[in-house]
Design a binder for these strands. Structure first.
Lengths: 324, 324
DNA sequence: CTGAAAGCGCTAACAA
DNA sequence: TTGTTAGCGCTTTCAG
């Protein structure tokens, strides 16, 4: 920048002001500076700027696994939104491991990120305290509330009720659930909603038909095997997400169990997969890109100084296909 | 850091050396510093360090669409590898638009990224010249060579030959291709390999059965419609990747065309989808995570100073399932 | 084994 | 309308 200043015959402050437009500059001077900038191919050094202003342009996105289509779409939408505001998205995977979650969150502070969007699984509810004390904007996308952060969560009560009502109406009686991990933060709200809706629909969910899992395809396969080993087998399965539902389908195929004849399967998220598998998966749609946009909005507001602790709900809805 | 120095009764230089281990420090001094660091909860400011050293810890990953499972897996693997070396991965989508590709590449230089991994589509072959002149390590993942960068590309000649031989052996005669865009940089090597292999297998690929597309699911649907409108319909389709192959399957279903009875379909990449759709997709596997690891290796070598222009090939292989 | 001090490139008072 | 200057927090000579 000193070079540009010299070349244009002005001070470096003036160059800075021309570039930022933060104070009026005489046309003539501006021209000279712009000319010099062009001639020298100068670009601002964002590192120096960050050091000076204390503001970074990097936002962390911390998710269990970016290869899960739900998070990949969320990441895409977040990136689209934030890029338009000059921010960059840094992606990290936790594999849903608590230690990794903690490490990465510490890193957000250590690296002076401008903000963070996270889907925590096993983090303490007040794990964001330090972060917020350090003044780092944060948004959580989860089914569970965490202290001191903005939240994006599904509004899925009605959809789950419709799902269970559908199962009841089609003559199903015993519903199994491939749930989330037992040690997840804040329990398992999706499971609770399912239980409530089942009760309302007059369906039973026996304890031994609720099997915990890691939100993975493999968890779906294993879960299905456990369901088949139950004293009384279920005639329907609700899955914590579509990836596990696909695992359940894998398991059913291996076991020669017919969907939906022998057993109905319902997923959650409506990722691309859902309409591709056969039978097509009935699922509770939870639009990942919209979640990403909401998270971006909340985060941008915080970064702009509105220090709120708000909750934004994204409506989930039942999509009926042929697995029920 | 000054605070820590004061608290420990040493100079800030000593604090720096304790933290970096770049020169021996008396045990007593070290203890005092570490104690002070702990008490004050001090962490190094990476921005200041970057400014001083001129080295950033951010690596850009520039891909058409992170929501495409291939790139999502690539991103996951890249992130895993680079994180172990203290780097962060910044993801950006180009939507395969040339202008966006150029913008993002300029930004890599402007933002002083430590390196870049990119899948370009419409970029000039020498678009990396500026970048390399600026000394930014770069790795391209593509089927095409670009000047002045390391490359990760598929070694798929044998696999494509096997694919076409398989089609010939199962009595197919007229092969259609859903190819890449016509204005892609360096033409369409996948198409060329298919043509060569078809000739070797004694199969014809009429000009009107080669339809260009954008590597998207939609391109698969549209491409299939065009193939069905041809004078003489194909009895097999090779697709530029699995996402388009899924689009072809969508199209076939809508048109009431049976796979594989009426037409065989072969994809490329072997993403998760491939084994999930029905019929299961025969495809040329190209392991995204391995591509990510290779890219990481090449990039790390460059960032360590080995200024090579190397090509690393990842072996692709035919996976035969039920769509052929 | 340790300290003093320069300086990375920028921004934002403050002064003119 | 413009310039001078301090300093963001760190690393790294150079000197002791």
């Amino acid at each position: 920048m000193t070079d540009v200043a010299r070349a244009a015959g002005v001070s470096s402050a003036t160059v800075s002001y021309v570039l930022s437009g933060k104070r009026p500059v005489a046309d003539e001077t501006r021209q000279a500076v712009e000319e010099a900038v062009r001639r020298l191919g100068f670009t601002l050094n964002p590192v120096a700027r960050s050091l000076r202003t204390g503001r970074s342009t990097f936002v962390a996105l911390i998710v269990p696994d970016i290869a899960n289509p739900f998070y990949a779409h969320l990441a895409g939408a977040l990136q689209d939104q934030l890029r338009a505001h000059g921010y960059h998205v840094v992606v990290s995977n936790t594999a849903a491991r608590r230690e990794t979650e903690e490490d990465l969150l510490r890193e957000v502070v250590g690296q002076r990120f401008a903000g963070v969007v996270m889907t925590p699984f096993r983090l303490d509810r007040d794990a964001f305290k330090d972060l917020r004390r350090a003044g780092v904007p944060a948004v959580v996308s989860a089914d569970v509330e965490f202290s001191d952060v903005d939240l994006v969560m599904p509004d899925s009560t009605a959809a789950v009720q419709r799902a269970l009502a559908l199962l009841a109406a089609s003559g199903r009686r015993r519903v199994g659930v491939i749930a989330g991990p037992e040690d997840a933060t804040g329990g398992d709200p999706r499971l609770e909603r399912i239980k409530d809706a089942a009760a309302a629909a007059g369906l039973s969910i026996p304890k031994d038909l609720v099997v915990p899992g890691e939100h993975t395809r493999r968890a779906g396969v294993l879960g299905f095997e456990r369901l088949m080993a139950a004293r009384l087998r279920p005639d329907a399965v609700m899955c914590v997400n579509d990836v596990t539902a696909v695992g359940v389908m894998d398991g059913a195929e291996q076991a020669g169990v017919e969907i939906p004849a022998d057993i109905a399967v319902i997923g959650h998220d409506d990722i691309d997969f859902a309409s591709l598998v056969r039978p097509r998966l009935t699922t509770i749609s939870y639009p990942a890109r919209q979640v990403g946009r909401s998270a971006a909005r909340l985060l941008l507001q915080q970064m702009d100084g509105r220090a709120s602790c708000r909750v934004e709900r994204v409506v989930a809805d039942l999509v009926v296909r042929s697995s029920t």
